[in-house]
Write a protein that binds this DNA or RNA. Structure first.
Lengths: 344, 344
DNA sequence: TTGTAAGCGTTATCAT
DNA sequence: ATGATAACGCTTACAA
């Protein structure tokens, strides 16, 4: 099936395959004219050195993996955008894996990636309360790992996060200053470090403002909109909070749906604020107050950090466990406003 | 650096490397007990056969590439979600490439992928009015290509699209029936097949309803929000349309921003409808009427189609140029409503 | 059922 | 500046 390769190209040009190989490696030990001739003919034939052969020979893949819980989500898609940008600049390739928040899939992906397929991994994790020792393989195989946003605290590795505690504290305090006395905290998984950190900010802000912390106001939600609607409807019917702090975007959205359906006015009856990377928060009815993480930037920094590690020599790699912390932005809009809603 | 491989594992177990290899290939020609022993020891050592070596030997990569203009966009991130799902089920890996709507990058990616790195490509294209012959390489190298959503009409290959003409026709007619006499059509690139098809639906709907088509009402926009704001502000100041049909989501959003800023009431002063995959269209102020493409489904179908081709024998591959057309959904909400806006 | 050996396409080392 | 050759780690006829 006449597939071209370096050998055939060499024969055709009456050269040795080493010379042809050199032409592609950009090395200096080749006559520029020979080089041109080879490259010209290669272009005609649409020939490029086989990727797997090079990688096998070189023991590296010029590929990184990104493992995230989901992608149809503004935060993660923007972060991936940032990662891809950096990878593209470095001529690296990016593999995407979605865990669907299933720890088993996370383990399966990582395990599968330890066979030389990738040079490094960027991950936002899924199973806080699980056994994380499966990540040891990566250390043994010298495959660097960078966590972003959702991390395992018991794993020593590089990471890029945001100032979640501080943001949550400020967001909660903002609700209180806007008049809320009974703020519910909505969370998807209390046990994920990110849920814990954000919750602590919430708790401490209450404390500082002399509002007793009430366990019942911490609402454990799901990833499914319909389930969340049921949960939140129940919340608004029984506990009647006057403020809602959504620790992830989808819970702010769910709150909106439920309030609209129940004829509860935001912000007159209940004020809402949430972590969110939604660009159109200003266009919601009412516009949504958000804590916005620098999603693109986080992806970018995570990728830069990974490449920094990859460019080190083998021996130093394991010493890099830097934690880059970026600032989120608290943006106050109508949903948490003290003033009555001004339409438009 | 004591890296394990099939040979060392074989030596350790006093077997030949072929036997060890067989244990991993699931083939039947191996004693189940030997097999177990090998797999057990491999697991202990976290050993998996080297990916590049296998691929080199097998001449395939178990990897597909997805090339899209952008990812921080509901349509594409959902489509990728669908693709990844199918790939995961097939134990395939997914590479992501973002062209940023730059034809040169598209060419570079495809060209680079023709060296055996991937078994197939799924793409949503960027450069309608360019020379598409660069895609010929794929045909020669027998790398199947599936277009989705944005396609090149002059390229013979499999594709997954939606009934754009029909949807656009209906959307435009819906605006007319809601009382619009002067409907602007917002487009990012008139020359992309998708823009042309959608525009034709718009034009024909006007014609059928005896509204003369006015070229000035076809507004060429950009991908950047700020530029679009300027363009649309000018539109609303000068031509004062009473209806706006946004051929892509970001233009509907931009219209909202401008109308809010200019104190133009949607839908009282101007009605808006747009192609959009935004899940929270119902929560916008006012809720946005949309033509919603089955983004996830499109990704899923595109991937299924690609695998169908991959599973064929070499000879048949090129004959598959099927075009799968899925239906979009027209969802009428307040932004195009005849009734005065009911708050909530 | 297991072993032997050739070959997948490249690159780096060592000669020339 | 170019060529010969030995890996890289795996799979699959073919042989035993």
């Amino acid at each position: 099936m006449g597939n071209i390769n370096i050998i055939k190209l060499a024969e055709e040009l009456n050269l040795s395959k080493s010379t042809v190989s050199r032409a592609f490696r950009g090395g200096s030990d080749i006559n520029p004219q020979t080089r041109e001739k080879i490259l010209a003919r290669a272009k005609e034939l649409n020939f490029l050195p086989n990727h797997h052969a090079s990688n096998l020979r070189n023991q590296k893949s010029k590929t990184i993996a990104v493992i995230v819980p989901e992608i149809a989500n503004n935060f993660f898609s923007k972060a991936i955008n940032g990662i891809e940008k950096v990878a593209k600049d470095k001529s690296y390739h990016v593999l995407i894996y979605l865990t669907d928040d299933d720890f088993q899939k996370e383990v399966a992906f990582v395990t599968n990636l330890s066979n030389g397929r990738v040079d490094g991994i960027i991950m936002s994790v899924s199973g806080e309360d699980q056994d994380h020792s499966y990540l040891q393989v990566l250390k043994r195989k010298k495959i660097p790992l960078v966590f972003f946003d959702r991390t395992y605290e018991d794993v020593e590795t590089a990471r890029v996060t945001t100032n979640d505690y501080q943001s949550s504290f400020e967001a909660t305090e903002h609700l209180i200053k806007s008049g809320c006395k009974k703020v519910a905290y909505l969370v998807v998984n209390k046990n994920l470090s990110i849920g814990k950190t954000r919750m602590q900010g919430y708790i401490d802000a209450l404390k500082k403002n002399n509002i007793p912390f009430d366990d019942h106001l911490v609402i454990d939600c799901s990833n499914e909109l319909e389930k969340n609607k049921v949960i939140l409807r129940n919340l608004f019917e029984t506990l009647k909070p006057d403020g809602v702090f959504a620790s992830v975007e989808r819970l702010a959205i769910a709150s909106y749906y439920v309030c609209h359906a129940m004829n509860i006015s935001i912000p007159d009856d209940v004020k809402v604020i949430g972590f969110s990377s939604l660009e159109i928060s200003p266009l919601l009815n009412p516009s949504l107050s958000t804590i916005t993480q620098p999603a693109y930037k986080m992806g970018e920094r995570a990728a830069e950090l990974l490449f920094e590690i990859l460019e080190k020599h083998e021996e130093e790699k394991e010493f890099i466990t830097r934690n880059i912390v970026l600032d989120s932005e608290l943006i106050q809009r109508q949903s948490s406003s003290l003033e009555p809603v001004a339409i438009r």
